[in-house]
Nucleic acid binder design. Structure first.
Lengths: 220, 220
DNA sequence: AAGTGTGAAGGCCTTCACAGCA
DNA sequence: TGCTGTGAAGGCCTTCACACTT
């Protein structure tokens, strides 16, 4: 039995995609300390899921393990990256250069996984024209022109709630493939454009909910 | 039938708690424009869920609606806040005053929902002793002493992955009720302590996964 | 007439359990 | 023997459908 990848033929549970990312993060940590192999049991314990869940998740995408041995970390990492689409780099535009936006630019985790911020937009005249990481901050109006020209595929929205849908519309018009939204509002984007949204206040409310109702919960 | 709250007797689905936050955010937006009522249909359309789902979610906590009329926004908002535990304020400690941590302090959304940062910790001698929002940044070693003294109930971790578990352990020792983790690692916290984790790179990987596999997906 | 509240049905995800391979 | 891969079972969450209320 070997390590054969397959197209994710069957429908993949939403939660599986999230866990694949966590598996990858764990594997990268293990590789860094020189571990050669791991097992569904070990992965599961580290991430708080059952070993069966780990095997099922990986099973959606292929056969990567070796019975009696486990998974070879150096083999599994590239496979996870292919599955997640991070076996390549992505050009990312950031819209909204406020506190949060600036912090995201500095955040090393994105670059480390192959996401490059190569365009910056804001509507503040004070910011437009100034430099950030070797790039010039441009007017939001320029999105429709710049995004296709620079082959930008993903857009991060870090603007106030009231401006977010307008920015999303512009990104969609510009042909963006996916939107990562930090504005505290649910955006409407057409089918075919990827959409992931994080509302930081909502997440903190989850914590107060769990604490208030005494059930510990783990959320990602 | 009227507006009667009940304890969340039955087990509440994990996803329901998330949606309650989104309902609240939407209601606050409607209230701001003076809307008196809303309906499960309207709520559902705005958030991308079915009307039945909305009614079911609310149903876990009580009877808040009026048949033929819908939900009175001014009544529903306080009820949602009680459910989420944000009908009060929370004292929050921030550990890790880097780019992300600093941005979180400035982020208005937390304050708006009643979360107050009232203690700051870092292990960088350059930062310890300097002021942030009227508070002095203290050494991480001081967590165990300061947290109980200042009645701090929630802790936000924004330190590098390698330091996160140690910080979590300190917070737990200090009697913290809940931990909100931004470090890209799965933390182990005892049962009884709330835990919510966000890995920003994981979320962006979700987006590249969806885009790569052509299925649009909405995630929060 | 309009819209909630909720048992029942349905569907999706997780867990189980074990055949099969190294 | 040890551990994966996977059909089958189980459980949880969502959707349906309609009685009931204003």
């Amino acid at each position: 039995m070997g390590h054969r990848r397959k197209p994710p033929s069957a429908e993949v549970p939403k939660a599986t995609a999230t866990r694949i990312s966590l598996y990858l993060r764990y594997l990268q940590g293990r590789e860094a300390v020189g571990a050669p192999t791991t097992s569904s049991q070990q992965l599961g314990e580290a991430l708080g899921v059952t070993a069966a869940q780990v095997r099922k998740d990986l099973g959606y995408f292929g056969q990567f393990g070796f019975p009696g041995v486990g998974y070879k970390i150096s083999h599994l990492i590239p496979e996870m990256k292919k599955i997640l689409g991070t076996d390549r780099t992505w050009q990312v535009a950031l819209v909204g250069i406020g506190n949060l936006g600036s912090a995201l630019v500095e955040y090393r985790g994105f670059e480390r996984q192959g996401f490059h911020f190569t365009a910056f937009f804001d509507n503040n005249p004070q910011l437009i024209g100034s430099r950030l990481n070797d790039y010039t901050i441009q007017d939001i109006e320029a999105i429709v022109e710049v995004v296709p020209r620079e082959n930008i595929e993903l857009g991060v929205i870090a603007v106030p709630a009231g401006a977010a849908q307008g920015v999303a519309d512009r990104l969609v018009d510009a042909g963006i493939l996916g939107i990562f939204n930090f504005a505290p509002v649910v955006l409407s984007v057409p089918v075919g454009v990827g959409y992931v949204s994080i509302d930081l206040a909502v997440q903190l409310e989850q914590l107060s909910f769990f604490v208030t109702h005494q059930h510990q919960e783990t959320v990602e």
